[in-house]
Design a protein around this nucleic acid. Sequence first.
DNA 1: TTTTGGTACCTTGCAATACATGGTATATAT
DNA 2: ATATATACCATGTATTGCAAGGTACCAAAA
Lengths: 109, 109
Amino acid sequence: MNVENTKAQMRKGVLELCILSILSRGDAYTTDLINKLKEAQMIVVEGTLYPLLNRQKNAGLLSYRWEESPQGPPRKYYSLTPKGENYLSELELGWEKLIDKVNSIRNRA
Amino acid sequence: MNVENTKAQMRKGVLELCILSILSRGDAYTTDLINKLKEAQMIVVEGTLYPLLNRQKNAGLLSYRWEESPQGPPRKYYSLTPKGENYLSELELGWEKLIDKVNSIRNRA
DNA sequence: TTTTGGTACCTTGCAATACATGGTATATAT
DNA sequence: ATATATACCATGTATTGCAAGGTACCAAAA
């Protein structure tokens, strides 16, 4: 049990929300997602992302299409489905409520 | 994969923070903690809390003492150690940064 | 005395999942 | 051909929240 581990735990919980949120503003493939998460200082690696995207796809939250790459193998571009949009809305609400809940605990006299 | 599951994931990450935060304002035993978390609508059950408190105690973040109960068996009251206080400080910082990071992803144009 | 009910502690087994690691395939350049 | 960069994916491990069940203490009722 160490601080970095625990902070990683906190990140985990919101990772799904972040991915759906990024995709809500436009289709992206895995490397896009990793880069955008990195920009926001959210550490994620391939081994985490591929299975997660697969789970979300299998749950009907995402669809994908293949697209040629300027260099290298084709890319799998993911898009939010309508179901994914609903899911995202609920997660956003849950996230905001969670912030309130935690702050209510932290600020209680 | 469903919304409740994912929201539970988000809760998990901040559970440690919440427990340490509650204890920072005074010693408490398990049922106290559960009640305070429930007040803040953070769902937690015994089977989660006991192992977690044990981990935190083994990590030197908490100490405990036995105290008589008005009715029933004695209670194990936990206190934050100095190490636990430092740990809490870092988690608080991590939590605030996480909020910023997630919001930077959500609000990006 | 025995039983019941409430409180409090803890353990075991399961399931979910992030991550490290390693593997495969494609395209281009040397 | 070989090397390099890009991109996909799978496997194994460790963590950990939770459900379920167990043990023990105390007081009051039967």
